[in-house]
Amino acid sequence: MSKPRERILSTSMVLFHQQGYNSTGINQIIDEAKVSKASFYQHFKSKDELCIEFFNKRFDYWVSELENFTSDAKTVEEKFMKSFDFLVYMNKKEDFRGCSFLNIMSEIPGDKIEIHNVIRNHKSKLREAFNEDLKDDLLSAHIYLLFESSILTSQLYKSNELIEKSKLITQQLLKSSTSH
């Protein structure tokens, strides 16, 4: 059996993603991870600290999956097209669960500043990556907004339709930016 910290993290990865923050209690994590309460608090001072660790692990996982999915792209345009395809893939894999970061952000009060900062930091990294690829702040912001909003709307409608439309819009934006 894995170590208590690993079991707590792996249990919270599933529960926070599937149930959210408020619906996941420490006692449920302790029970499902098969650890004692003392062991939980030995590894994590609070549920908030565990949530931050969840976000860091989830971000690393998500970025790694995205990079693997787009790694064979030959052009920036192809990379962005594959990025939208990745969203479709994740919706199939995770049953339209959406973005864990935004799901949890909507649940927690504004005074949980550390958690909000972690969410903002991870979202900023994605924006920076888009800008790094495109080297055009306005264009990358536009595509980033299409990307993020298509995650939300696909979760809302349980459909990939708006991801596909965002992909087409992105393709047009990229074509028109290179034709100038």
Rank of each mutant, 00 (worst) to 15 (best):
S36F: 04
I29T: 05
Q42I: 15
G98F: 00
A38D: 13
E78P: 00
Q28T: 15
V35I: 07
L102K: 08
A33E: 05
T75N: 06
S106K: 13
D60W: 00
Q42S: 15
F54H: 06
F80P: 01
N68L: 15
A33R: 06
E67K: 15
L66P: 01
K79Q: 12
N91I: 05
S36W: 02
F54M: 08
K82H: 05
D72A: 09
L50F: 09
A38G: 15
D48Y: 05
L50M: 14
I29C: 03
K45S: 15
E94P: 00
E65L: 14
E107S: 09
W62D: 10
N103T: 06
T70P: 10
K82N: 09
S100M: 04
S100T: 11
F40R: 02
D31C: 08
F84T: 00
A33W: 11
N68A: 12
S64H: 10
E107M: 10
W62R: 06
A73G: 06
N56F: 06
V76C: 01
L66W: 15
V35G: 03
L87W: 05
N68T: 14
S36D: 09
E94N: 11
K47D: 07
D31N: 10
D85N: 13
K34S: 12
F69G: 02
V63P: 00
D95L: 11
A38V: 14
L66N: 01
E78L: 03
E107Q: 14
D48T: 14
